[in-house]
Simulated scan of single mutants.
Amino acid sequence: MAATFRRDIDIDIAHNYLTIRAKRNEYHEEKDDTNKMIRRERRSGEFVRRFYVDHVDEEGIKAKLDQGVLKLEIPKRQDDDRSRRQIQID
């Protein structure tokens, strides 16, 4: 299993979309006792996931990578009360 590095993961937010990108580049080489090449493998891939987020405090978003698990903390905006509005009847 390949290790996950912080430089392989990119997280950004723009226009109410939170985007997570992760790249994987693996290289494996196997040699015999005389240092002769038996097998060489390369694998690479990219993962992209987008989430629509609304009413969030963009400056307060935190990300933590711990033992290969990415955790995001996305706080709501405190001053935003646009989810419900009372309409006066004339």
Results as ranks from 00 to 15, higher is better:
L72F: 14
Q78C: 03
I74Y: 08
D80Q: 09
G45S: 13
I61T: 04
E73Y: 15
R84I: 04
F5S: 05
D10F: 10
E41G: 03
V56Y: 14
I20E: 05
I74S: 04
I74W: 05
H15N: 07
L72Y: 15
R42S: 09
Q67W: 08
H28L: 02
R84H: 07
Y52G: 01
R24D: 12
V69E: 14
R82L: 07
R43F: 15
F51G: 01
L70D: 10
R49C: 02
R21E: 06
D54T: 09
A2P: 08
K76N: 12
R24G: 06
D57V: 06
E73V: 12
R21P: 00
F47W: 05
F51S: 03
D81W: 13
E58A: 06
E29N: 05
K64V: 07
R84N: 06
K64E: 15
A22F: 03
D8N: 14
L70S: 11
P75Y: 15
D66K: 15
T19C: 02
F5P: 00
K62S: 09
I89S: 00
Y52R: 06
D66G: 03
Q88M: 07
E26I: 11
V69Q: 09
I9L: 15
R40P: 00
K64H: 09
H28D: 04
D81I: 02
E41N: 13
K64F: 13
R50T: 03
Y27R: 08
Q67K: 14
Y17Q: 14
L70G: 06
R40I: 11
M1E: 04
Q78G: 05
R82W: 12
R6I: 04
R42M: 07
R49W: 13
R85E: 03
I38C: 07
G68R: 10
N25V: 09
R84G: 03
R42A: 10
D33Y: 11
Q86I: 07
K62L: 11
H15A: 03
D66S: 12
T19M: 02
Q67F: 11
R49E: 10
D10N: 15
T4E: 09
A2R: 13
R84V: 03
S44D: 15
Q86P: 01
R82G: 05
S83L: 10
P75N: 13
A22E: 10
K62R: 15
E58T: 07
Y52M: 02
F5M: 06
R43M: 10
H15Y: 00
R6S: 13
E29M: 06
R85V: 02
I13H: 01
H55A: 06
V53K: 03
L72E: 13
I89K: 00
Q78M: 10
K36V: 06
I13F: 01
E58D: 03
L72D: 10
D54E: 14
G45F: 15
F51R: 05
S83E: 11
T34Q: 04
E29D: 05
